[in-house]
Structures are given as C-alpha cells and as structure tokens.
Design a protein around this nucleic acid. Sequence first.
DNA 1: TGACGTCAAGATCCG
DNA 2: CGGATCTTGACGTCA
Length: 420
Amino acid sequence: MKIGYACLTIGVPDTNFKSCLLKNASENNLYELIYHNLNALENIIDYNIQNQLLLFRITSGLIPFAGTSANTLAWPDIFADRLAQIGEKIKSSGMRVSMHPGQYTVLNSPDPQVVKNAISDLDYHAQVLDSLGLDRQHKIVLHIGGIYNDKVAAQERFISNYHHLPETVKRRLILENDDRLYHIGDVLDIAARINLPVVYDNLHNQTNPCEGKTDNCKWINHCRNTWGKKDGPQKMHYSQQDPQKKPGSHSGTIRIKEFMELYEHLGRTDLDIMLEVKDKNLSAVKCNNCVSTAKTIKTLETEWSRYKYKVLENSPSDYTEIRTLLKNKNQYPAVSFYSLIEQALQKEIHPGQAINAAQHIWGYFKNTASEKEKSSFAKLLAEYNQGQTRLQTIKNFLWKMTLKYNQPYLRDSYYFILSL
DNA sequence: TGACGTCAAGATCCG
DNA sequence: CGGATCTTGACGTCA
C-alpha cells in the first residue's frame, strides 16, 4: 500500500510552483516558469523519496498553459533531458505518480470547442507522464463532466468522445465519482462500457451517494474489479469533511483515528490511497507512519521534533503528555501520538502560551543575537502582550533569525508553517 | 450573473 | 521600501 498526497508540499524549501497571467505568457516567460517548476518538482520528488512517500499527484500547473494556444513552446523537446532525469528518480525509487485535470476539463460537453480543449488538455497530461518515461500504471484521473438536462445523452457523449482520444491518453485514463453529478454507480456503469479503472472518492460519495449507500468498503471492493494487471494496484481518493465548512470541503489534516477505522475495516493493503487534505505531505507522513508495522519510536521522535513547538504553543498539557508517551523506547504508539497532536492543534492559542513557545525558539538565538535583535524581540513580545502586534509578526521575526543563524532544527519545525 | 474550487499573481494598503 | 493583506484570474457548468 502506498499513501500519497496531491500536487503541493508544505514546509519543504524550494518546492513552490509559479504561473503567470494569460497576457504575460510570452515564450521567454514560459520558458523561465517551466525551468523553475521542473526544479520544484524534482525537489518534491527528492523530499518524497527521503520520507518514503511513494505516491504523488503532479500538479496540472507544471507547464503553464500547456495544451492551449497560449503555449506554443515545444516544451517536451526543450526540457526532454530534465523530464527524463526526474522520471528516472521516480522510477528507481518505485514511486507512483498521477495527474488530475480539474473540474474545467470536460470531455462530454455539447460544445465542440470545449471538447477539443479537453482532449488537448488530456493530451498534455499524457505528454508529461510520457516525457517522464513512466509506464501506464501512472494514471490520469478524470471526472465524467456535465449533464446538460439529459444525463443519458451526456453519458453517451462521454463514451463516444472517449473513443476519439489518442491511445497515449486512453491507456492512462481512470474515472472518478464527483461530488454533485455522477455518483459511483454512474461511473462504474460508464467505466464498464469502455473498460476503464475506477477511482473511488469517499468524500464525494458522502455528498453524492449512490442510492444512499455510504459503505466505503463495499464500493472500494466493487471498484477493485475494474483494475487490470497492466493498470497497477487499485487507487482510491481519501479525504475527510472539514467540520467548520460546507459539505465536501477537505479537512485541514487527516484525523488519524477515522482513517485507521477505514484502514482496518478494509482489511486489505493491495491498493494505493491518495489523500486530499490541506496539510498535504504532513498527513501523508502521518498515515504512512500509522499503517507501518516496521517502524520504531525513532520515527515518532523525528516527527515530534517538527511538531513540538507548535504543540507547546497550543497546549502545554498535551506537550507534556506526548513527552511522557515517547519515554518508553520499546513501543511504537503512532496513533496515540498523532491523536494527541491533533487534539493540541485544535485548541485555541492563549497569548501566554504563545509567548512561552516563542521564548523556547528564542533560546536558540539568545546568546548569538545582536543587541538590536534582542531589543527587537523584547519589543515584539511586549507589543503582542498588549494586543498591538500579531503573533504572526513574532513568528516572521523568528523565522528570519532561523535562516540568518542557520538553525536546521528550527528550519524544519512546523511551528512556522501551521497557522491554525 | 454569481457560485463553485484552487492556487499564485497582481494590486493595494500600511508602517 | 518591504511586508502584510486583499482581489483577481483561469477554467466550464449549473442554479
């Protein structure tokens, strides 16, 4: 079982993607953007390998405006070597990647121009994966599209347009249930007629269930049969509802107990799970660590080193409890560990605790900081105490100090990137 | 015509 | 001037 995340990282240096407005999409500009984005992608792949994250979705924004008339750059040729290099890392590490055109790529539109654009966009996605030198187990995920007042006709149009796709796309295409129009039953019907694998999305099935059936395991096992040997292991999308937001909104982090319930109820590990969640790689590492049986307390200690100051800021009592939990070096209490972190991060930050955590961070600098920096920090704390400065300002200051005085331990801390 | 979703660019505001 | 915060853009469908 591989567990992965989609498109972006948090807290990993030099992994941001760039884009531009349509009006600025000159060849020169596009060249620079692609050059930058391929470096970012390679840095993400490196990070994934280091952290044993072997499932990943590549962002559709990798090549800005690819597949549209705004980008006439021969990017597959120009960047052939770079793409091949990155592909080698993916292959040699055993990583599986995918791509997922968004809700605006609609293959079954009654408008021929929209269909043409969709085909061109799918072709672009296939070109990326082909240029990376990856086989057909590296998939392209697509939704069915719109209904246009006639669902039957719309489904027929999807199938007929599918047949017009180039082989490079067909061999990678897999279909996903969406949160509004085509539920998992619809998608299974369509997929059966054109022999495509189906990706089950649990949250989409919650907001758009098939015949009111929300038994995840049932649908997952149903979809299993759509996956052929050449397609690689079955894939599914997993996400959780953000309780604060409207139905269908992804949660900030994967609540680990809820995830483990599904994992254990499933009782099989011959499938890959793509997480869709705001904290991206953080949840992927979390879930990975919790399903792994081969890890030791050392893994959790490394994770703790990243979370600890953030936990201290939100909840000193949970901080103490986690430290106690990690004292027994012969156990591997991963789920308890992450549950306590989740509990801590849900708590409201009290100013006194925030100052305490900031002072812990400051401890790394108090002997080396200049007089000016010392007085700046003191001033910020005092202002924050009186409600005149935001906590974020203090954190920005400490982040600058972290880079200036090169403190790797702090540089990797989630204290700086988890804002909730 | 606005909402939907997602991200970063671009614009604007502030000290 | 630099940094923080707000608005816009790019896509297509549906209410």
